[in-house]
Nucleic acid binder design. Structure first.
Length: 307
RNA sequence: CGCGGAGUAGAGCAGCCUGGUAGCUCGUCGGGCUCAUAACCCGGAGGUCAUGUGGUUCAAAUCCCAUCUCCGCAA
């Protein structure tokens, strides 16, 4: 079974590994071009590229698939399937029609909810209790294709987007294998998405990561979780940026003003808009390293946060 | 040459501007108090102040130079 695999971030790595392990003939791995990363702006390969090279697979990194050149290149492989997981580009019709069986996408949400770039983060951000993975037949729209299989995943109240990401990435290969096997045998009836129920999960931006302490503790907690490990929710402390990596809900009420920090030996307890205290458990001040609340408090006095 | 912050005891920080015996909180060790305690009191140990057999100086954690490492912004 010849497969072209398309994916970019770490989320897409486990599925690629499984395909190789299950003896699919992965004839080509398509991933985004290397992009500048880090302080020095050095070009860095995608996670999928790194894994593909380690597995000795052919890698293709076009800036767009909408060229004759890209089509010619990929068509010569005569794939049975094209498997796509968080690749980051929409495939043109001629490439969608390329494989003998289908173009299958592995998406990190229970469609039609959270179509788009950041389904998992949006789900955590919204405080959802359940999310999951959907496999679908791809079409020219953005995650609008007919659905094949789903698996659900329960989100812990304290799980960060990164943790849910990892969990879903680990469970994705099972669903993918099952999907390919059943679809090849004609055992799945593709199900149309109900567009009326669909929502769009836009990419996260840093503008959304700033904490508004007048919101409820739960809202802020979800923001912190959803923005971790990127771009990371932040606030200000004495004019410096303070990133909040994780927090913990308390059931303590307070009469302190919004943004005031309750004096405590080993917890950073901040008064939120709904009068509840939110405990910040992992923080990082500009120029300094990430540390837990207790360590942070050994060297810092905090009275008010957010300015 | 993108901009900026930082490296001081096991941990987190102050001291540096205005050079002159290195300090705070926590931890750790010992003792005390207590029915008891992660609480409280007393005491101790622990640091070539990132590196440079660098420069200036009577004297450098502090001023100057070089290097390494970490971090924020930017992407």
């Amino acid at each position: 079974m010849k497969v072209i695999y398309m994916g970019t971030p770490d989320f897409a790595v486990p599925c690629l590994e499984r395909l190789v392990k299950e003896n699919f003939d992965v004839v080509c791995v398509v991933t985004q071009p290397d992009k500048p990363k880090g302080r020095k702006q050095e070009l860095a390969p995608s996670d999928v590229k790194v894994k593909a090279l380690a597995l000795g697979l052919e890698v293709y990194q076009p800036s767009t698939l909408r060229t004759q050149e890209a089509y010619d290149y990929l068509s010569k492989f005569e794939p049975d399937y094209i498997i796509v997981a968080a690749y980051g580009k929409i495939l043109p019709k001629n490439i969608l029609d390329l494989p003998k069986y289908a173009c299958i996408n592995v998406h990190g949400s229970l469609l039609p909810k959270y179509r788009g770039a950041a389904p998992i983060q949006r789900s955590v951000l919204a405080g959802d209790k359940v999310t999951g993975i959907t496999t679908m037949l791809m079409n020219e729209g953005l995650d609008t294709g007919d659905m094949l299989l789903k698996s659900e995943y329960e989100i812990d109240i304290n799980a960060t987007a990164g943790e849910v990401f990892d969990a879903l990435a680990q469970s994705a290969p099972d669903l993918l294998m099952k999907t390919i096997e059943m679809y090849t045998k004609g055992e799945i009836i593709p199900e149309k998405q109900n567009d009326a129920d669909s929502t769009y999960a836009a990419m996260l931006s840093k503008d959304e990561a700033v904490i508004d302490w007048s919101r409820s503790a739960l809202h802020i907690h979800n923001l912190v979780r959803g923005m971790s490990p990127w771009p990371v929710a932040y606030t200000c402390l004495d004019g410096k940026k303070l990133k909040i990596y994780s927090s913990c809900l308390t059931n303590e009420k307070t009469t302190l003003q919004v943004g005031k920090v309750k004096e405590d030996k080993d917890s950073i307890l901040v008064a939120c808009g709904d009068g509840m205290l939110l405990s910040l458990t992992s923080v990082q001040l500009e120029g300094s390293k990430r540390m837990d609340a207790k360590s942070f408090l050994l060297g810092h006095k905090i009275d008010t946060i957010g300015k």
